[in-house]
Design a protein around this nucleic acid. Sequence first.
DNA 1: TATCCGTGGGC
DNA 2: TGCCCAAGGAT
Length: 389
Amino acid sequence: MKNKDLLKENNVVMWEEEKIASFQKTLLDWYDSSKRDLPWRQTSNPYYIWVSEIMLQQTQVDTVIPYYNRFITTLPTVQDLADADEDTLLKLWEGLGYYSRVRNMKSAAIQIVAEHNGVFPKDYKDIIKLKGIGPYTAGAVSSIAFNQPQPAVDGNVMRVLSRLFELKIDIGKASSRKVFEEMIRHLIDQERPGDFNQALMDLGATICTPKNYKPETSPIKEFNASYLNETWKQYPVKKTKKSSREEHYIVVAAKNSKGEYIFEKRGAKGVLSGMLTFIMINRDSLDEGNWKSFEGKVDELGQQHHKQLQALLKKEYGVTVKLNDEIKGKLTHVFSHLKWQLTVIEADIIDESMLMPQVQLIHPEQFEKTAFPVPTQKTWELLKTLTLF
DNA sequence: TATCCGTGGGC
DNA sequence: TGCCCAAGGAT
């Protein structure tokens, strides 16, 4: 609505038409000669572009490539995605993180089948209505797959523009994105909007990087105010995030006589929602004197904390176990805003006749078919190691 | 609006 | 080592 004011309010002096045209040519010439050869650049299929964009959210290109190839091979069409079981999808996504992305993709695929006859919608206003697609992804798909002049503002674009225009707004704030989008509406090449957007992102990923930035090596250095004014070290402006919290858990790897392990399917909310972990007991739910005994070998408190853990396992999971005398080991898993400190202990299941619904027994022979988040994988790797004395 | 949501890599 | 970063979205 007041987009003109948006630039004025943030002291953005947009370039003249002639300079914009020159910038477009310089940037696209560089892109044509130096763009990265990526799998999703060998197609104009909007479904494939969409898959790549979702995977690339907060995830590096090198990580995504094998996942992308496997995903589109296994599920070549929107209909295939809409029909896929969640277990299949999670196995395809295993290790990528942010698992709600793939659940949202299935919802969106069902939307596309129901509302667009299975054909990926062409217009930004329809694309952004799809689950899991926000302003960036809607702009990326509509510009790359359908050649529509929509901005696709990600972290790269904000960094590049901050430096080009000496922009002092905090790129970490959600409200900042709209300013950059309005700038792109002026700057974007109307003939090649998809290439223009991708060129800015490629530049941000390979030359205009957060660290080890050498502005004199940039193909668009002559357009870069912060380079010409030697202020480039000040950009982009980004406030530091606050540090993450830490949680301590006792991980109980309980095995029955058939060799099956108990896993918990985590609830709908919170970290790793809907994913499988070994049984985890928050250390804070045990009396202090008891959890301290887990820091090393079992001591005099052993019998007491064993009893407390066993009572919790019976009450919360419906399983009766005999705990091993010593802990198997410790491991750490770091999330974005959270750190888990895990103390792993093995156990034998004595009675599994009253299991609660959120738990399931899985034999190791089935592990390769099952999707586990990385903390569960790390725990299993620890369990497989021999304990040496 | 600020926080939550995974994981791996770089320094 | 601990932090920052990576083609963000939902709430």
